[in-house]
Amino acid sequence: MTPKDPSDHPWSDLERPPLSAAALRRALLRPGSLWTSLEVVASTGSTNTDLAARAARGEAAPGAVLVAEQQTAGRGRLERAWTAPPRSGLFFSVLLAPDVPAARWGWLPLLAGIATAGALARTAGVDTALKWPNDVLVRYRGEERKVGGILAERVARPGGAACVVLGIGLNVSLRAEELPVPTAGSLVLAGASGTDRDPLLRSVLRSLEEWYGRWRAADGDPEASRVREAYTAGCATLGRRVRALLPGDRELLGEAVAVDGDGRLVLASGEGVQQPVDAGDIVHLRPASGTSPDRPPQESPGE
């Protein structure tokens, strides 16, 4: 029998205590809440993959929350890996069944970005920004660093009812030597006032519930729900010269001038031609015009 790795024990790192599923349930699963169930697992490949599979089998209802203390095959956009040491971050997925026109579902990851960035700013005391479409940024040593990513995937429940699995990954207590790539960051490195994952998770889920409720009440309208206004206010991509890496090995250079009513990023070329981008990787090439010179141009981390 292979000896168990001591580092797998929940209390192997006292600076990274385990989450209490019971305490989280007491705080979040109240009458009338969006959240209907909450489970914390020690380790899994991907919470998005697991929750999508449960939903497809009819084993998870809308409002389900699945949290992992460690992900070994976490996925970002374009199937990129998202890994971190056990209990060093928040890795969770939620199952949603939006009763709004499907054409407006593309706002969900942007809405989740607003909710997450706001919750981190309030609870951890860090300045946050959003990189279109699904990155949460902080600043570390004067540079933009990716601290979180969001992934939304559609899944059909038994009977054909469509749902969305929304996954959120956040680096909380990763030390500099633990960062997976030089462009990554963490809350602790950004000077967070607190890195207790329990209040952070509660705050993010409550913020997500609030914004999701506004959006649903407005039938998914990004203007009436003020989702577009909030996203535009917090988006670090707008006003920047960027490179859009598009499907089919295409590339587009321009200034990011707006997020349109469908959640697409609108780029303006040097000739003034505007083109919406609905999918692709965005690289920040330089600060927005008028931005303080002590904020040098940085390429934002990939998903």
Results as ranks from 00 to 15, higher is better:
residue 300 S to K: 11
residue 54 R to Y: 11
residue 13 D to F: 00
residue 196 D to L: 01
residue 112 A to C: 03
residue 18 P to W: 02
residue 194 G to M: 13
residue 4 K to M: 15
residue 238 L to G: 07
residue 164 V to P: 09
residue 10 P to S: 04
residue 186 S to E: 04
residue 36 T to I: 06
residue 5 D to W: 02
residue 164 V to Y: 10
residue 66 L to I: 10
residue 127 D to F: 12
residue 147 V to Y: 00
residue 4 K to D: 15
residue 204 V to I: 10
residue 256 A to S: 01
residue 269 S to L: 08
residue 51 L to C: 10
residue 77 R to M: 03
residue 257 V to F: 09
residue 240 R to K: 10
residue 294 D to Q: 14
residue 43 S to M: 15
residue 263 G to C: 10
residue 161 A to M: 12
residue 243 R to V: 06
residue 22 A to S: 13
residue 212 Y to T: 03
residue 98 P to Y: 00
residue 131 K to P: 01
residue 287 P to Q: 08
residue 72 T to E: 00
residue 155 V to C: 07
residue 74 G to P: 04
residue 178 E to M: 07
residue 197 R to I: 04
residue 40 V to K: 05
residue 150 I to F: 03
residue 39 E to D: 14
residue 29 L to M: 06
residue 298 Q to Y: 06
residue 177 E to H: 00
residue 16 R to A: 02
residue 104 R to Q: 14
residue 284 H to N: 11
residue 75 R to I: 05
residue 119 A to T: 04
residue 58 G to R: 03
residue 223 E to D: 14
residue 154 R to H: 15
residue 182 P to S: 15
residue 297 P to S: 13
residue 98 P to K: 01
residue 223 E to F: 14
residue 216 R to V: 15
residue 44 T to I: 12
residue 39 E to G: 14
residue 212 Y to W: 07
residue 137 L to M: 03
residue 152 A to I: 12
residue 116 T to H: 05
residue 61 A to C: 11
residue 26 R to H: 12
residue 51 L to V: 08
residue 169 G to I: 01
residue 302 G to Y: 02
residue 218 A to Y: 09
residue 295 R to Q: 05
residue 237 T to S: 13
residue 78 L to N: 08
residue 297 P to T: 12
residue 195 T to F: 04
residue 155 V to T: 07
residue 57 R to V: 10
residue 286 R to A: 13
residue 62 P to S: 05
residue 226 R to K: 15
residue 72 T to S: 02
residue 16 R to S: 00
residue 131 K to T: 01
residue 70 Q to T: 11
residue 176 A to C: 09
residue 215 W to T: 07
residue 39 E to M: 14
residue 191 G to C: 06
residue 113 G to N: 08
residue 172 V to S: 07
residue 112 A to E: 00
residue 68 A to K: 01
residue 9 H to L: 11
residue 43 S to I: 15
residue 205 L to M: 08
residue 24 L to A: 03
residue 107 W to K: 06
residue 45 G to E: 09
residue 123 T to S: 11
residue 20 S to L: 10
residue 215 W to F: 12
residue 253 L to H: 11
residue 92 F to E: 00
residue 70 Q to K: 12
residue 32 G to R: 07
residue 199 P to K: 03
residue 77 R to L: 04
residue 122 R to C: 12
residue 57 R to P: 12
residue 90 L to G: 00
residue 69 E to H: 03
residue 270 G to Q: 08
residue 255 E to S: 09
residue 106 G to A: 10
residue 9 H to I: 08
